[in-house]
Design a protein around this nucleic acid. Structure first.
Length: 207
DNA sequence: ACTGCGATGTCCT
DNA sequence: GGACATCGCAGTT
């Protein structure tokens, strides 16, 4: 069990690095989002990231920024450490964290997480029939569990009410505990092995 | 366990 | 008009 009060927000410099390195290092980090359910006091929704994917404007046709800047993807071109949220399939949201320096469009898609705190609220946001294992197992499910929409697009993940943190007491996760594989849902573009997940986690979107 | 399909906004050709 | 960084449900094996 971790002490949530000990969690330290990651600095912007964490994200201002190679996208695939950031994608790996985000595994095991904590996503913390303060959320106010209608009529109730704010609650910290906390989830440990267990699955990520990297996307990069260079050499990656499946990246939203591969064909230049648009209204939708403009946050990817901005400074690192910002949230990039997009709407897809007419009903789902997916969230990314922008990486690399301003002007280089790249990001890490958060694909799955392990519920750590605020699970009751996540359950209400996801619906009563959803099992705990599936609360945050998938990019759109994770957004639904944390109530993320394009309203949060572009915000800086630097401090409360919304940030990513590490547990100072936890060791860095060894690469031997991770699986590297191809990304999910890419059908047209040449695929890259830019998906990472924690080998022993039951909370990943797919094995 | 596996397969097919409907939902449906935004961007791209 | 088609594809899409998806999901949940229904139907079948």
């Amino acid at each position: 069990m971790i002490d949530l009060k000990q969690l330290k927000p990651l600095p912007e410099s964490f994200y201002d690095r190679d996208t695939l390195l950031v994608a790996r290092e985000l595994l095991g980090k904590y996503l913390v989002r303060r959320y106010s359910p209608p009529g109730l006091k704010p609650v910290d929704l906390v989830a440990k990231i267990v699955e990520t994917e990297g996307y990069h404007m260079e050499g990656d046709e499946s990246c939203h920024a591969a064909r230049g800047e648009t209204k939708r993807n403009s946050v990817m071109f901005g400074p690192p450490g910002r949230l990039y949220v997009y709407f897809t399939y007419g009903m789902h949201y997916c969230m990314n964290i922008v990486t690399e320096k301003e002007g280089v469009a790249a990001a890490v898609l958060l694909r799955a997480a392990e519920p750590v705190a605020g699970e009751e609220i996540m359950q209400e946001l996801r619906g009563p029939k959803i099992t705990r294992k599936l609360l945050c197992a998938g990019p759109a499910r994770l957004c639904q569990a944390l109530s993320i929409t394009t309203e949060q697009n572009g915000i800086a993940l630097k401090k409360p009410p919304f940030y990513v943190a590490r547990d100072p007491g936890a060791a860095e996760i060894d690469e031997s505990a991770m699986i590297t594989t191809t990304r999910i849902g890419i059908s047209q573009a040449v695929e890259h092995p830019w998906r990472y997940y924690l080998k022993d986690s039951i909370f990943v979107s797919k094995k």
